[in-house]
Design a protein around this nucleic acid. Structure first.
Length: 490
RNA sequence: CGGGGCGUAGCGUAGCCUGGUUAUCGCGCAUGGUUUGGGACCAUGAGGUCGCAAGUUCGAAUCUUGCCGCCCCGACCA
C-alpha cells in the first residue's frame, strides 16, 4: 500500500467502500466522525469478535451488559479518571421534546434531568458501582466479566477506523483479592491480545508497558500491544490496565479476607475495539484492495465459473458443488459465485478488492484437462492445479497465506526498527521513513514531553522483554538503563 | 476553537474569474443486442432544490452578505 494512500482517511472510504462508510447520510454535525459499518465489514468484525470471545471464555471470563448512561456524579469519584475523560463526553441533559412555535421539534426545557447522564466513554465507573453490591467476601472473588458494547468519545478530530466518535469494543472488568492476582490477570489478557493479533490477524505486535504520560486515566499500569503499519507509523492495538485499588476506593468496594480483615478489591480492565479493523486494513492491504488473513476472512475461498453455455455451467457446478462441500466439511468458508449478472473478470476484481485469500476459477477448458486455476490474494500468483485432491492443497494454501502475511509484516517491522543514539539522527529518521526507534530515555516525563513537542514522536512502550543496557538519554544525556520504543503514532 | 480548501445527479467532476438558449463530461444505473479465461462493446434511455437563505440584476450555478455542512493541518485522544 502506498504511503500517501495509507495516510488519507478519505481514500479509505473510497477504497474500502465494501467495509465502511462515513456516516455521511446523516447531514448533521452530531454524527460527525461516526462510521457506518457495512455488512461485509461487519462480517470481519464478527469473525474477530467470535475468536476473541472464545479466547476470553477459555480464560475463565463471562459476558455481561451494563448501562449505556452513567450518572455524572459517578465520574467525579475517581479523580484522574474524570480528568482523563471530561473533555470528550457526550452528555444527556433532557428527556423530552415538544413542538416549537413554528412547527419544528424542540427540546422541552421543562424536561431537564436532575442529574445529567454521560454516554459511556468507558464503563469502569458504572461497573464498579455495580460490583460494590456483588462483593462482600473473598469467596465472591474473582469476578471475571467482559462486556461487548459501543462507547462514545467526543474527540475533537476523528479518523475513520482509528478514532471514531462512537465505536464498538469489548471491555473486560475484573475484580481480585490480591494485587498479584490482578497483575497476573492484566498480563494474561495482554497475552490473549497478543496471540489474537499475531495468530489471527497476522499482525506482529510488541508487548510493553506505557509510560506515566500515556497511561490510562485511573490506572497504575497500562500494558499495551503496539503494531507497525505499512507507512512506518505505530498503532496501539490493545490495552490491558492494572487499576490497583483506585476504583475500589472510589466506589467503596471492600471485601473480607480469609483472615477476617477488610481490604479494598484489586481491579483490571482491558479492551480492544473496531480500531483492530483499521489495523487489519493498514497492515496487509495493497493498492488492489484488502488483503485478509485466512483465519479472519468472512469468505476464505471463492469459486468462479467460466462458461459460455448453460450446459457448461451445469457441468461446472456439478464439480464445484463437490469441492465446496468437501471444503466446508473441513470448516472452510466457501462461496460459489455463479451469478450470471457479472462477468468473470469483474468477479476477479471484486474478490481481490474484498481480500478473499484464495480464488478458484473453473472453466470448460479445466473440465477437459481436469484442472482448476488457483489464485492467491497475498502474492497475486496464479497457478493451474489438478482437480484431484484440490481440497487439501487449498487448505494448505490458506495456512501458507496466513503464515506469509505474518512473516511479511514482521520482516517489514524488523526492517523499519532502528537503534539510535543521537537526537539528530533520531529526528532525521522520523522525518525519513519513520518506523520504531529504540532509544535511551532518562525516564522523566519532561523529556518525554519535550521530545513529543519537538518531533511528534511518543514513547509507544517500554517493551516487556527489554534487556538492560547502560546508555545515555538521547535528549538530556542523562544516564539510562534501557531503550524504549519511540514512534509517530496514529 | 485557529489556519487552509471545498459544496453542481448515487459517485467523481466541468462551468464561476468575465451573469445570458435546454447546466458539461466520465463512472454507475435501466432497456435491447452482441459478448463472457482479468473490471466487455454498441445503441437507446432515466436521473439535478447547482448546500440553505436573503440581496443586486430584465436575468444568478456564476456577483454580494449571512448561515449550514464537509475535508486537510493543529490543539485533544484508543
Amino acid at each position: 500500500m502506498s504511503k500517501e494512500f495509507a495516510n488519507r482517511e478519505d481514500d479509505y472510504s473510497k477504497w474500502y467502500n465494501d467495509l465502511v462508510t462515513k456516516a455521511d447520510l446523516a447531514e448533521h454535525s452530531a454524527v460527525r466522525g461516526c462510521m457506518v459499518i457495512k455488512p461485509y465489514g461487519y462480517a470481519i468484525w464478527e469473525r474477530m469478535q467470535a475468536e476473541l470471545d472464545r479466547m476470553f471464555k477459555e480464560t475463565g471470563h463471562v459476558n455481561a451488559y451494563f448501562p449505556l448512561f452513567i450518572p455524572k456524579s459517578f465520574f467525579s469519584k475517581e479523580a484522574s479518571h474524570v480528568e482523563g475523560f471530561a473533555k470528550e463526553c457526550a452528555v444527556v441533559t433532557h428527556y423530552r421534546l415538544k413542538n416549537g412555535p413554528d412547527g419544528t421539534i424542540i427540546v422541552d426545557e421543562d424536561a431537564r434531568l436532575e442529574e445529567e447522564l454521560i454516554v459511556r466513554p468507558t464503563s469502569e465507573t458504572i461497573i464498579w458501582n455495580t460490583y460494590k453490591g456483588w462483593i462482600q467476601s473473598y469467596r465472591d472473588l474473582p469476578i471475571l466479566v467482559n462486556q461487548w458494547a459501543n462507547v462514545v468519545r467526543w474527540e475533537m478530530r476523528t479518523r475513520l477506523f482509528l478514532r471514531t466518535a462512537e465505536f464498538l469494543w469489548q471491555e473486560g472488568h475484573t475484580a481480585h483479592a490480591t494485587a498479584d492476582e490482578a497483575v497476573e490477570e492484566t498480563r494474561k489478557m495482554l497475552d490473549v491480545y497478543s496471540v489474537f493479533a499475531e495468530e489471527w490477524m497476522a499482525v506482529p505486535v510488541i508487548k510493553g508497558v506505557k509510560t506515566a504520560n500515556e497511561r490510562f486515566a485511573g490506572a497504575l499500569d497500562t500494558y499495551c500491544i503496539e503494531a507497525m503499519m505499512q507507512d512506518g507509523k505505530a498503532l496501539q492495538a490493545g490495552t490491558s490496565h492494572f487499576l490497583g485499588q483506585n476504583f475500589a476506593k472510589a466506589f467503596d468496594v471492600k471485601f473480607t479476607g480469609k483472615d477476617g480483615k477488610q481490604d479494598y478489591v484489586w481491579a483490571t480492565s482491558w479492551g480492544v475495539s473496531t480500531r483492530l479493523m483499521g489495523a487489519l486494513v493498514m497492515a496487509h492491504s495493497d493498492d488492489s484492495g484488502l488483503v485478509l488473513p485466512p483465519k479472519l476472512a468472512p469468505t476464505q475461498v471463492v469459486i468462479v465459473p467460466i462458461y459460455r453455455s448453460e450446459e457448461a455451467l451445469a457441468q461446472i457446478s456439478e464439480k464445484v458443488n463437490v469441492i465446496k462441500k468437501n471444503l466446508e466439511k473441513q470448516g472452510i468458508r466457501v462461496k460459489y459465485d455463479d451469478r450470471d449478472t457479472q462477468r468473470p473478470g469483474w468477479k476477479f476484481n471484486e474478490y481481490e478488492f474484498k481480500g478473499v485469500p484464495v480464488r478458484l476459477a473453473i472453466g470448460e477448458r479445466d473440465l477437459q484437462s481436469g484442472t482448476v486455476e488457483v489464485a492467491r490474494r497475498d502474492t497475486r500468483e496464479k497457478m493451474s492445479m489438478s482437480l484431484e485432491g484440490i481440497e487439501d492443497r487449498v487448505i494448505a494454501l490458506l495456512d501458507e497465506i496466513q503464515a506469509n502475511l505474518f512473516n511479511k509484516a514482521k520482516s517489514y517491522r524488523e526492517g523499519n526498527s532502528f537503534r539510535i543514539d543521537s537526537y539528530e539522527e533520531f529526528k532525521k529518521q522520523l522525518d525519513g521513513s519513520g518506523g520504531f526507534i529504540y532509544a535511551h530515555w532518562d525516564g522523566t516525563a519532561e523529556t518525554e514531553q519535550k521530545i513529543k513537542e519537538e518531533t511528534k514522536a511518543t514513547i509507544r512502550c517500554i517493551p516487556l522483554n527489554n534487556g538492560e543496557e547502560e546508555g545515555t538519554c538521547i535528549y538530556s544525556g542523562k544516564p539510562s538503563k534501557q531503550r524504549v520504543i519511540f514512534a509517530r503514532a496514529y
